[in-house]
Amino acid sequence: MNSKTSLYIVALSILSTTPAIQRDGEYNRPQTANSLTCINQRMTQMNFCSSVSFVEQYVPVTDYKNRYKRIVSSAKFKAAYRNRSLGESILIED
């Protein structure tokens, strides 16, 4: 087994054991743990076939506070809301 083949096997091993990257409220990738088969039989000497699947996976969200911490500290939020008026008010009750 040459060094290039070894490198592919190491990369494949890492991908196959890495859990999906979880970030609140976003579509994440990759979900590889259950989609590993083989890329190249000749290269890996494996006796099964397959591909690595990069599937969009929606991760359910529970940690809204951390997500909103990132949102309100972002440059986009500050540009939209910092030093902006709350708007003209129409009094409806006192």
């Binding site: 909103y68 949102i71 309100v72 939020f77 500050k78 809301y81 910092r82 030093n83 902006r84 008026s85 709350l86």
Partner: peptide, 12 residues
């Protein structure tokens, strides 16, 4: 959006 961030950042 969080009310605190909206009000706390406002000009008023």
């Amino acid at each position: 959006y969080p009310a605190s961030a909206i009000i706390g950042n406002s000009r008023e």
